[in-house]
Structures are given as structure tokens and as C-alpha cells.
């Protein structure tokens, strides 16, 4: 399947070029670059909201980006059933927009955390269907506010609707206190919306797909979408 795509840049985004490279190499076609002040998205299958420190992360991560002019059309894209992946700051923005439930709090150890981590698939969806149930993906994280939070009812809804896409785990797939490196609720590393066309995840698949990267596991997420 061919997959057309776009990446939004906000002031302070710093993984927009990485997302673009990830998309262009794996989909083998050009990606649209969108500026946050644009008001219309091109017709594309997939939109990536990249990582970084949009608006300096001032006030709250993602809060100001969520009020950008382009967001109205992002909501429409989601409504139409278009795919969206929000990575890191992109995940934070998606929760601030309200497309994803919950919020991302400061890492429990109060330190920026940049290292390779392991995640595994939980509920199956179009973003992870190429990943087998017992497979551990090695993918870098780099964030200061990645500790996923939701209320008890919210969490139950995620569970019931099978929206919990990825969990932090160790190399062998165990979810332990130490593998849950930012203190996320129930080890959550990535969730989808109810319709399962919007994914938010803290780890960076776009830093784990080329032959010189420490791991190539990040390919699997895009490949799942490519069918």
C-alpha cells in the first residue's frame, strides 16, 4: 500500500526533520511539511505530530501548540478517520487537544530521560499489527514529561475499549517497576483514541529504523500501517 503523509512543525519542534526522514524512507514518497499557522492540511493518509519542545514547553508541554491554527483541521482529519501519530511532544499535544485521553506528567525521577527502552504491544490495532505479541521493541526515549496519567474511570475506559497500544517492559518482556522508566500509570507507553486511528507514544520510532541506528524496531510501526 502506498501511504501519503505530512508532518506539522510548531515553533520549537525538533524532531520534524527526523519524522520526515522516517516517513520518506519507509513510504518511499515525499512528505508534506506543514507550518502550525497553516489552516488546511493536504489530503494525506497519515499525519505525524513530531517531538520537540513546542513553544518551549512553557506553561505545560503541548498546551500552546494545541491552540495553533492548524489544529482545527487536525481534528477534522481525525474525524474523517485519517491516521495520526503523535510522538513524544506530539503525544503531549494530542492529549492537550483532547484527541487522546489522559495527560503526561513529569518523569517520576524528575530528570530528563534519554536512553534506549523496551516496549511491547498490548492491545492490537493498525499501528502495531505487524508486531507479534511476545516481541520486545528496542526504541529510544528522550523526554522530561512522559509519565502517563489518567483517572481510574479513564483508565478503565482505555482498558475496556482496548486503547492501550504499547507498554514499557524489560528486554525479556516483563513489565517491572524498573522497566517503567518514567513512572507511567500501568506501564503505558502509547495509547490510541477510541476509533484507533490516532496513536500517541513517548518513544521515538523515527530514531530506530536505519541500519546505523542502535535498533531498527521502529520500522514495525510504520510497516503495520503500510499493511
Amino acid at each position: 500500500m502506498s501511504l501519503s503523509s505530512a508532518v506539522i512543525t510548531f515553533p520549537g519542534s525538533n524532531c520534524d526533520r527526523d519524522a520526515q526522514t522516517y516517513l520518506e524512507i519507509l513510504t518511499n514518497q515525499d512528505t508534506h511539511k506543514i507550518w502550525h499557522k497553516d489552516v488546511l492540511l493536504p489530503k494525506v493518509d497519515l499525519l505525524i505530530i513530531p517531538g520537540g519542545f513546542s513553544f518551549g514547553d512553557y506553561l505545560r508541554s503541548g498546551a500552546m501548540a494545541a491552540k495553533s491554527p492548524i489544529i482545527d483541521d487536525v481534528l477534522k482529519h481525525a474525524e474523517r478517520g485519517g491516521y495520526i501519530i503523535g510522538i513524544c511532544n506530539g503525544f503531549q499535544i494530542l492529549t492537550e487537544i483532547g484527541l487522546l485521553d489522559g495527560a503526561l506528567n513529569r518523569n517520576v525521577k524528575l530528570k530528563f530521560l534519554a536512553k534506549n527502552c523496551f516496549i511491547k504491544k498490548n492491545h492490537e490495532n493498525n499501528f502495531n499489527k505487524k508486531i507479534s505479541q511476545d516481541q520486545c521493541l528496542s526504541i529510544p526515549v528522550a523526554h522530561n514529561e512522559g509519565s502517563y496519567y489518567n483517572s481510574e474511570e479513564g483508565l478503565k475506559l482505555l482498558q475496556d475499549n482496548e486503547q492501550i497500544s504499547f507498554l514499557y517492559c524489560d528486554e525479556e518482556g516483563n513489565t517491572t517497576d524498573s522497566s517503567n522508566l518514567n513512572g507511567s500509570l500501568n506501564h503505558i507507553a502509547g495509547i490510541t483514541n477510541k476509533k484507533k486511528n490516532v496513536l500517541g507514544l513517548m518513544p521515538h520510532p523515527e530514531r530506530a529504523f536505519q541500519d546505523f541506528h542502535t535498533s531498527q524496531d521502529g520500522q514495525l510501526i510504520l510497516e503495520s500501517l503500510l499493511g
Binding site: 527526523d18 534519554a114 523515527e206
Partner: peptide, 12 residues
């Protein structure tokens, strides 16, 4: 260095 992002830009 776990407090330093060492993989951003995707070319490390």
C-alpha cells in the same frame, strides 16, 4: 548522559 538527548536528529 542519560539526561542528554543523544539521538535527536536521527543521525547518531
Amino acid at each position: 548522559y542519560d539526561q542528554y538527548d543523544s539521538t535527536v536528529m536521527g543521525d547518531t
